[in-house]
Design a binder for these strands. Structure first.
Lengths: 162, 162
DNA sequence: TAAGATTGAATCGTCAATCTTG
DNA sequence: CAAGATTGACGATTCAATCTTA
C-alpha cells in the first residue's frame, strides 16, 4: 500500500496528458477513414488544406514543412506522392534558385473542397457539437494557451509581429 | 471574393480541429526528447505505464492492444522490442493456451518510475500549469466528452458497467 | 559557411495471411 | 468456424549525409 511509486503512477497530471493523447487518437480514428474514402491521408489533407488557404495557393517547401507536422524530408516525400497524384505541382522559385514552391493544382483544390462538407459535418458531430457554446470557447482558449507554450510562433497574432 | 469555396476553407470547425491536432503535435515534440533520453518512445512509455498501473503489472496482449493506440500486430512488435530490452516479459496464459500476458519486469518498472519525475514536471510546465484551476477542469471535462464520442467504452465509469 | 531541398538507410507501424487453440 | 497472437510484405516517416546555390 504505502509504496510511494504508486502515487507517481497515478498522478493526476498523467491522467490529463493521457486524456489529451487518447482524445486525439480517437479523433484521428474517426477522421482518417473518411479522408481515405477520397484517397487522402491525414497528412495529405493537412498539407493540401494549408496550400488552399495560402496566397496564390502555394508555399515554399521549407515554410510548408515548418507549418506541418512533418520534417523537411518527410514533406519532400509527401509532395512527391501528391505531385504524382496530380494534386500539387512544384515550381522553381525565381528569386532563390535553391527554393521550390509547392502549388495546389485545380484538381488538388477540387479534391480538398470535395471532402470538406462531410469532414465539417464529422467535426461538428464529434467535437464542436458535443460541447456547449461557452464550453467550446473555453476549450479552444485552453488549447491556444497550451499551443503557445509548446509551439511558440504558431499563433497568428504573435507571428504577425515577427 | 464571392467564391463560396473560401467560406468552406475558413470554416471555424476546421480551426477547432486543427488547433487540437497542432497542440497534440506540439506536446509530443516536447515529451518525446525527454522520454528518448531514457531510451523510450512515446508508444513504449504508454504501454509500460499501462502495465505499471494494471493488477499484477500485467495485461493480456489483446487487452493491451485495445487500450493502446496500436493495432494487435503493432503491439506484438513493440513488445518484441521491450522484451529484448528487458523491460517486459511474455508469460503464457494458464487458462487459455492461445493467450499471452505482457508482464512488466522489475527493470521495466524502475525505468518508468525513473522517467516520471521529469515527465510530470514537464506536463506541469506545458499543460497543467498553463491553465487556471477552473480552466483546467473545464478543459479536461471537454476532453472527456469528446473522448466518450470517439472512443466509446474507454471511460472507466462507463466501462465498469459492461 | 549556411540554407533549401533531396536521397539512402533504417525504424516503426499497418494490412492481410497464417498458425494454433477454443 | 471464431479468437489470440504472430509473421511477411509493404508504406510512411525520420536521421544523417549530400548536392546546389546564397
Amino acid at each position: 500500500m504505502g509504496d510511494p511509486r504508486e502515487d507517481l503512477l497515478h498522478d493526476h497530471r498523467l491522467t490529463a496528458a493521457g486524456l489529451m493523447m487518447e482524445t486525439h487518437a480517437g479523433l484521428l480514428d474517426v477522421f482518417e477513414p473518411e479522408l481515405a474514402a477520397r484517397g487522402l491521408s491525414a497528412s495529405s489533407f493537412e498539407v493540401l488544406l494549408r496550400l488552399a488557404r495560402s496566397p496564390d495557393r502555394r508555399l515554399r517547401m521549407a515554410e510548408l514543412a515548418a507549418q506541418s507536422t512533418l520534417t523537411s524530408s518527410g514533406l519532400t516525400r509527401l509532395v512527391d506522392r501528391l505531385e504524382a497524384a496530380g494534386l500539387v505541382a512544384r515550381q522553381p522559385c525565381q528569386t532563390d534558385r535553391r527554393g521550390f514552391y509547392a502549388t495546389l493544382t485545380e484538381h488538388g483544390l477540387e479534391t480538398v473542397v470535395a471532402v470538406l462538407p462531410s469532414h465539417l459535418a464529422t467535426i461538428e458531430r464529434v467535437l464542436v457539437g458535443v460541447l456547449e457554446p461557452d464550453e467550446l470557447g473555453a476549450f479552444l482558449g485552453a488549447l491556444r494557451k497550451v499551443r503557445a507554450i509548446v509551439k511558440p510562433g504558431s499563433d497568428p497574432a504573435v507571428a504577425a509581429r515577427a
